Computed example of a mutant assay.
Amino acid sequence: MPPNDHPYDAYFEYVGNLHIHSRYSDGAAAVHEIARSAKQVGLDFIILNDHSYMAEYLHLQDEGFYDGLVVLLGLEIGGRYHHYLAYDIKEMISGRSLGPQEVIDRVNAQGGFGFFAHPFEKGMPFSEKSLAYTWNDLSVKGYTGVCIWNFSSRWKERIKTVFHGLFFLLFKSQFLKPPSRKTLSFWDKLCQQKKTAGIGGSDAHGSLFKWHGIRLKPLSYEYLLNSINVHILLYKPLSEDFAEAKAAIYEALRQGRAFIVHENLASARGFKYYYVSDEGWNLTMGEERPFQTGTLFIKIPKEGEIRLIRDGTVERRWRGNQVSFRVKQKGVYRVEVYCHLSVFGWRPWIFSNPIYLR
């Protein structure tokens, strides 16, 4: 069934965590151990992105169903700069001597696709001297999208001293910053030029932090696998055939038929955002069509502050859990939702992929 003819209320929602590191690179656990943790927090799928310059092989033999959980393996390709999250690749790409455009081209040549990882991160001031793995060459082409929200990157940017570390460990969920303004502005501009999918990720390592005899694990797999998650929308239930399930998950990510959630604040299962034209056709996140007047509908699982963004600018704000908006002009429309926590105020919760009305 073509996407624009699919009933807006007939999608099947699945929740996954992306950008996870295992012992194949600099993570602290084996694939099966990470899968067990993901199953415990209620995920439907996970995708590992071990560093290509550390991993010897792609290890596709580890893909499969783990007690009903879909486990997929991609790569994080890059060295000092230009880290690229590659998905649906068939062979190892080391990337050691490749420029960013060459990396993208090689991923595409395998039928894969990818996203900029933490393109504008700032690094941790305290123990890493603000070392950041940024994207400096933004002239590249052929990539699918951008990881707009990386839990580990946003969390560590605030750690300036040991006292900051202790404070933001205690309140790591409550004080997580939203995607940076620079990242969102970059993404919004890209989306106005062409469809550009957005994802989020945990960047989970499960690593020990060592400092003056102190040894602790500030961000465990169990915590991070329920941090920044991606909810995908499928046209039919996830298949019990692994190859079909893998293809469906990757197609949803490639198309941007998804939304990004800070899951530790509250579950966002059931979030809906779709467009119904006056002629009766409809679109959901990641879909596009020439503009015709119609109505946007937004429904969230609990009350929050809903912000409708058009071409990078806030078009309208509401407080509630279900709203509609009459659309009279073309544009790229996406949604941000903030969740209210007592004492802590309004905190970033849901970021949708856009609906493109050209």
Rank of each mutant, 00 (worst) to 15 (best):
A247H: 13
E303L: 01
S97L: 12
F113W: 01
F113V: 00
W135E: 10
H32R: 13
K122W: 07
I148A: 09
L169T: 09
S342Q: 10
Y273C: 12
L184C: 09
F115Q: 02
L72S: 11
F175Y: 15
I77K: 02
E128F: 09
L85D: 06
S139R: 13
E263V: 04
E279V: 07
Y275E: 12
G95L: 02
Q193C: 06
L265W: 10
K129L: 08
E305G: 11
P237F: 04
Q192V: 10
A55I: 03
L238K: 11
G312Q: 03
F168D: 12
K39C: 10
G27H: 00
F259M: 05
A117N: 15
Q110V: 02
V107C: 07
V261A: 08
S277F: 08
Y57K: 14
G112I: 05
Y87W: 03
S342I: 10
F126P: 09
K122T: 15
R181W: 15
F291K: 05
P125E: 15
S324P: 00
I199G: 00
R347V: 04
M92Y: 13
A132V: 04
G79N: 09
V327W: 05
L138N: 12
R158F: 11
R310H: 04
F116S: 11
R310Q: 14
I89F: 00
I214D: 03
K195Y: 02
A245W: 06
E13R: 10
F209M: 12
Y84C: 05
V146Y: 00
L43T: 07
V230E: 04
A28N: 13
L224T: 04
G112N: 01
I47Q: 04
L190E: 10
S152T: 14
A197N: 01
